[in-house]
Amino acid sequence: MADNNFENQTNNNDVQAAVTAALDVEKKKKKKKKWIIIAVVAVVIILIAVIASGGSDDSSSEDSNASAVTSAVSAESEEKSNDTVGDFKCVVKGAKLCKDLTGKDAVLITYEFTNNSDSAVSFDVALDARAYQDGVGLETAILDEDTDYLDVDIKPGVTKEVKKAYNLRDTSTEIEIEVSELISFSDDKIVTTVEIDK
């Protein structure tokens, strides 16, 4: 009984950690993230149901599911190249100097995004792209209304250019781009360093 309580407490801590991580992502990515909350709530409900049932059959089922996930992650890691993370390929094509709406220096990063998953998905829903100068994160910039960088879903096997803007600290320091899956248990990242095209 004590082991069950300890396991339930551990599982509750895991559930709490997952919810906390998802809420942090929500705060940073204010756009198009409502579905993440829905997905997290669904996962939490499923985990609570598994914990509440507490039966050994459910435990062995959970263990086999965890083994399947581990096997899938291992297989993906073996096939992964330097520009692939999870089911997605992302190549940084360039960094162009520009101005944001307030006239401050910004950079427009062009990504080449390929969806190799089983369903249609947009860049922002699939991947988390962050830019750094001297190890300090750059905030997302808003460019003028004429700039077309709308993110849309693309079907499996399709490649599309996606543009994201970031406010600069200065115009001479190179930029490090880190791209990872938005929701993943893996720490895999695509890391690219680019110089600003002036």
Rank of each mutant, 00 (worst) to 15 (best):
E161L: 09
D153C: 08
V158S: 08
P156N: 08
V136A: 14
G137T: 05
T159W: 06
K164E: 10
G135N: 12
T171V: 15
V136T: 15
T159D: 07
K163T: 13
R130G: 06
A165I: 10
E161F: 00
A126C: 00
S122F: 06
G157P: 08
T140S: 15
V121L: 11
I142N: 10
S119V: 07
L150R: 13
T140A: 13
K155Y: 06
I142D: 11
L143E: 05
Y132M: 00
Y166K: 07
L168E: 03
A131K: 05
Y149R: 11
Y132E: 07
L150Q: 10
D151R: 03
V121A: 08
S172V: 15
S119R: 14
Y149G: 06
L168H: 02
E145Q: 10
V121I: 15
F123W: 01
D144H: 10
R169T: 12
Y149L: 14
A141Q: 03
K163R: 14
A120L: 08
Q133H: 07
V136W: 00
R130K: 15
K155C: 01
V162N: 00
F123V: 04
D144E: 13
V158L: 03
P156S: 06
D124P: 00
E161P: 03
V162W: 03
E145T: 09
V158N: 05
K160L: 11
V158M: 05
A131W: 09
L168M: 11
E145R: 01
K155M: 09
K163L: 02
K164W: 06
G137N: 08
D151T: 02
S122R: 10
F123I: 07
V121Q: 13
D146S: 13
V152C: 12
K163Y: 10
D118L: 14
T140N: 11
T140Q: 09
A141G: 04
S122P: 00
S172M: 11
V152K: 14
D148Y: 14
I142S: 15
A126E: 01
A131P: 10
A141W: 03
V125G: 01
D148R: 13
E161T: 11
T171E: 14
Y132T: 05
D118V: 12
A129H: 09
V125T: 08
G157S: 09
D134R: 07
Q133M: 09
A120E: 15
E139W: 03
G137M: 13
F123L: 07
D153I: 01
D170M: 01
G137H: 01
